[in-house]
Design a protein around this nucleic acid. Structure first.
Lengths: 218, 218
DNA sequence: CACCCGTAAGCTTCGCGTAAGCTTCGGATG
DNA sequence: CATCCGAAGCTTACGCGAAGCTTACGGGTG
């Protein structure tokens, strides 16, 4: 993914650049609108991160200019918490999203991900755990290189446990996560699913905490 | 994943519900704030999808109410393209994200995904005490770097003592905290648990105050 | 007809209350 | 101040029974 970062504060830009690059993105960073404009005329980016306060001009105006040129590239605004009107303005002028400074690096990543979703080659979001690779997007699980087929309910249980890892999740919580209102179940169905998950994914992946619930092991 | 969908337009809600259910989510759909409020009081959802224009009230007000109740569940606003100020307002009132109508079903899915991931990796609340690190969220205890496994009752006792630290907690209070009404016990079970806690967590962690109760040492 | 899933039966595990025997504490007593 | 004694608390082994596990089966579904 090729990302254009327009931001004059090095203290913000540098870690963001590195964080995104660590994720196998190409990040080109400029501190002025002039440089950025030159870059955007010659290169096709997948997403633009635009700070609104720059030394040589108005970020909002630049945004309008880009949309006026019919540039379709997704644009995410980087803005301060107190500049609410700027945010509104930015969205009105065609920004796709915004992130409030100071931002969490992973949040920026998530926003980029969401905004770029329409491009087909998005990177699937996966979680690694022991000898498992779990793809949260397409619900696939690979164990020691071999794909594992999970049923719908099995996946439901695993998903909740993964999301709460390494916390203990009460059986009750797991049940409400899996069953809709009115289709509650009165048997040890959950225990049966846990058992099936263990045989598919490994005996000691899920720990039982008697009287409390289940948890994934680190 | 358990999702609460608050949306009065069936033409929008029904396909969304089906699309999310196809992904093994549990979706509960209500068309009014009254119904939704009743639902949210009795059920723990993983995420709430909230339309702002509903027949029986103001969605933004409802949002404020929920956050006022200290509800932490992620909330995603469903809003029309031209209601920019509503979007901003919503985010300021504690919404986690928004989706613009008419929305792409997959985009909603992506937003839910992002928002849940963000809320999932919040920093767990931990307490340090001597050579112990106690995680109040996932009920784990680490002593001098080594994890310690506590049983349900042991954790129950420790939790109460921690919350009241460094006060003295009467045995009676500890018992009512651990036993449900009607399953009171008539023996020195509590003392036994204290004893087991001491061997697991250190001899001098819990001080006995004769005739009064127990307290944690600073 | 293939497969998912709830059910139930039989089995295993282990948390926990119980109680016995011990230690500690603190007040009373001289 | 030293001693004594009973009450309060501590520790430990034990065994019961609830909680959890596994598996086979059959109904339902697509």
């Amino acid at each position: 993914m090729r990302i254009l970062l327009i931001e004059d504060e090095a203290a913000l830009a540098r870690p963001l650049k590195e964080h995104l690059e660590a994720d196998q993105n190409i990040v080109e960073w400029f501190g002025t609108l002039d440089e950025a404009d030159a870059a955007i005329r010659t290169t096709d980016y997948d997403v633009v991160l635009l700070d609104l306060q720059l030394p040589d001009g108005d970020g909002l105006g630049f945004l309008s200019t880009l949309r006026g040129r019919a540039l379709r590239t997704p644009i995410i605004i980087l803005t301060a918490r107190d500049k609410v009107s700027d945010r509104i303005d930015g969205l009105n002028r065609g920004a796709d999203d915004y992130v409030i400074k100071p931002f969490d690096l992973d949040e920026v990543k998530a926003r980029i991900h969401t905004v770029c979703r329409r491009s087909a080659d998005q990177i699937a979001q996966t979680v690694q755990l022991r000898d498992l690779v779990v793809n949260m997007t397409d619900h696939s699980v690979i164990r020691a290189g071999q794909p594992v087929r999970l049923t719908a309910k099995e996946w439901g249980v695993l998903e909740v446990l993964l999301r709460r890892k390494p916390q203990i999740v009460a059986k009750e919580n797991l049940e409400t996560a899996i069953y809709a209102y009115g289709e509650e179940v009165e048997s040890n169905a959950l225990e049966a699913h846990i058992s099936r998950l263990r045989t598919k994914l490994g005996k000691d992946l899920i720990t039982t905490h008697r009287g409390m619930g289940y948890a994934l092991n680190p």
